[in-house]
Each structure stands twice: as C-alpha cells, then as structure tokens.
C-alpha cells in the first residue's frame, strides 16, 4: 500500500515542474523579481521591465510550456526572431518623435558619431575575451542604447546571444539615469554644466515633412541592411508631421506601440531561462555592455567639448551624453 502511494506520488511529482527545479531557476526568478521591483518601486522603465521580469519569472518555473513550440511566448519570440517587432517599434517611436530640434541644429548629429566610441571599445574588448567578431559586434551595439536596434543587429550577427544582449540593452536603458550622470559630472566643469545655448530657429512644416522622406531614401540607397528600422522610423515620423492622418500617427505611437511592447517584453523575458542565461559569458556581456554605455557617454560629452573649440555658438557638453541613443 505504502509502495503504491509512494509510486503514485512520484508519478504525480514527475508530472509537475518541481522535479526539474534547480538553483538556477531560483536565481532567475530572483532576477525577474528584481526587475519587477525596480519597475514598480524605483520606477525604472516600468513599461519594459514589468513584462520582461514577469516573463522571466514564469519561464523559470519548471513545467511551463509557454516557450516550447506552440507556446504563447514562443510565438512572441518568433516576432523578434523574424525581425518583425523591432521595425514596428521604430514606427511607433518615429510617430512620437519631434526631429525639429535636430533639423534646426544639424551639427548636433555629430554627437551621435562621437558617442559610437563605446560600441567599438566594447567590440574590441569582447574580441579580446574570446567572442567571435559577429558576437563582439552584437555585444558592442548594447552601447547604442537602443533596444530594437540591439535586437536587430544581434539577430543578424549572433542570434544565440539575444537573451543576454537584449536584457543588457534594455536594463542599461532603464538605468541610464544612474549610469550617465556620474560620467557627465566627471567630465564637465560647473560652468560647462550651466552653459546656455542659443535659441533654435523655427523649423517649417515643409522641412519636417521632407526630412523623413529624404532620410528614408538615403538610408535605403546607401545602407540597405538597416533600412527596415530607419524606414519604419521615418514612416512613423511622416505620419506625425503631415498633420493629416493623426489617427494613424496616434495608433502607431500609442495603441500599436503598446501592443508591440507587450509582445516584445514577453519575448525577451521568455528567453531568460536559467540554462541559457546563467553562464560566465552572460556576466562578460553584461560587463561589456556597461562599459559600452560609460565610454559612449564619455565620448559624446568629449565630442561636444571638442566641437566647442571650433564653433561660435557653444554647445552645452552635457547634451553630448544623448549621442549614445
């Protein structure tokens, strides 16, 4: 009787996830809980971290079949893997972005080039640590401070590193208010921090409409590999700037972006399984990503300071930190 009960109980246990539970699952659940905590209590990027953290917790409960083929999270991940979701996010971002200040002050775009240094420093160090060149490039792009771009590049260069890189990219984006200020303060004087900038000229509606069309055409002509992202960014921006299709612009930057964000966060969180995430490589990627952010911030600020040596209307060096995104 006892043996029968024991075997029945064992069979029941085998059907649950408890039999497959290991300490790695516990660590990942703790990481997921920390993400939710940071989002809810510290208000760090709640739109992203709540979904990522929650999905991370769920997929590390053994027995969950959400990430298996046919599972709901598996379908969400397919949207990322097939590179459908990142361009749609860019569509929404374009619909929400006013490029007027950049059009009014074109020299500011150079700050973006200067801030790329972080990407390349991380790339070289990743190679030194033994990653392949493709993996190193994907790791370096964390320093671009752009989640959809990081996903897009990673899926092209090193898709197997998507969990680590996407989590590092989105986590550091969320932690920007903590990472950037110390670097910015270190590299600027009090006078530079309080420096005023000249009033920007008014950008006409015509310029705002021409901008997305011209940029989309140039990017498709010269840089086809990244064209899907930038094209959708520009389409979203065109919808916003023509003033005729506010309904579409509001959908792209509102409802659609919200839906895509839900799918994206579930997809990213669902890749954070203990067996793929808890490796020494992950620690290296997280460290390199942080370095890319710090160096990118510093080089953006320094680029602004160098530009001030040559221009009459000075730039506040602090805005150089925005160059990384």
């Amino acid at each position: 009787m006892f043996e029968q009960l024991s075997s029945l109980f064992s069979a029941l246990m085998g059907q649950t996830g408890l039999a497959h539970f290991w300490w790695g699952n516990l660590v990942m659940i703790a990481i997921g809980m920390t993400m939710v905590f940071l989002a809810v209590v510290k208000k760090f990027e709640p739109f992203l971290l709540i979904g990522i953290g929650f999905a991370c917790i769920v997929v590390n409960v053994p027995g969950s079949d959400l990430i298996l083929p046919g599972g709901l999270f598996n379908y969400a991940y397919k949207g990322v893997a097939l590179l459908i979701i990142p361009p749609l996010i860019f569509l929404g971002v374009g619909a929400m972005t006013d490029f007027g200040p950049m059009i009014a002050n074109p020299r500011l775009v150079l700050l973006g080039a200067g801030a790329h240094l972080g990407i390349f420093v991380a790339l070289i160090l990743a190679k030194l640590l033994g990653f392949t060149l493709g993996e190193s490039g994907a790791i370096g792009i964390i320093g671009g401070a752009d989640g959809p771009m990081a996903i897009f590049v990673t899926m092209k260069l090193a898709p197997h590193l998507l969990p680590q890189i996407s989590v590092a990219a989105y986590s550091y984006m969320a932690l920007m208010p903590l990472i950037q200020p110390p670097v910015m303060k270190l590299l600027t004087s009090k006078a530079e921090q309080e420096m005023g900038m000249v009033q920007l000229r008014k950008v006409s509606r015509l310029e705002k409409i021409l901008f997305p069309i011209v940029i989309a055409a140039v990017v498709n002509l010269c840089f086809p590999p990244v064209a899907p992202l930038v094209t959708m960014l520009m389409l979203g921006n065109l919808l916003r700037e023509v003033l005729l299709v506010n309904r579409l612009a509001e959908t792209a930057g509102g409802g659609l972006l919200n839906i895509i964000t839900l799918v994206l966060t579930a997809a990213i969180g669902s890749t954070m399984t203990a067996d793929t995430f808890l490796t020494y490589r992950t620690l290296q990627i997280v460290g390199l990503g942080l370095l890319a952010f710090v160096v990118g911030t510093a080089s953006g600020v320094l680029t602004a300071k160098i530009m001030n040596l040559f221009v009459k209307d000075k730039i506040n060096p602090l805005i150089g930190s925005a160059g990384i995104a």
Binding site: P106, L110, E207
Partner: peptide, 14 residues
Amino acid sequence: FVIISGIGVLLALL
C-alpha cells in the same frame, strides 16, 4: 563621422 556628417549636410540643406 563621414555618414553622420553627410546626414548633417542634408539637414543643413533642408
């Protein structure tokens, strides 16, 4: 720098 400067020139021409 070259590509972004090029984009800057386009913006300046707008």
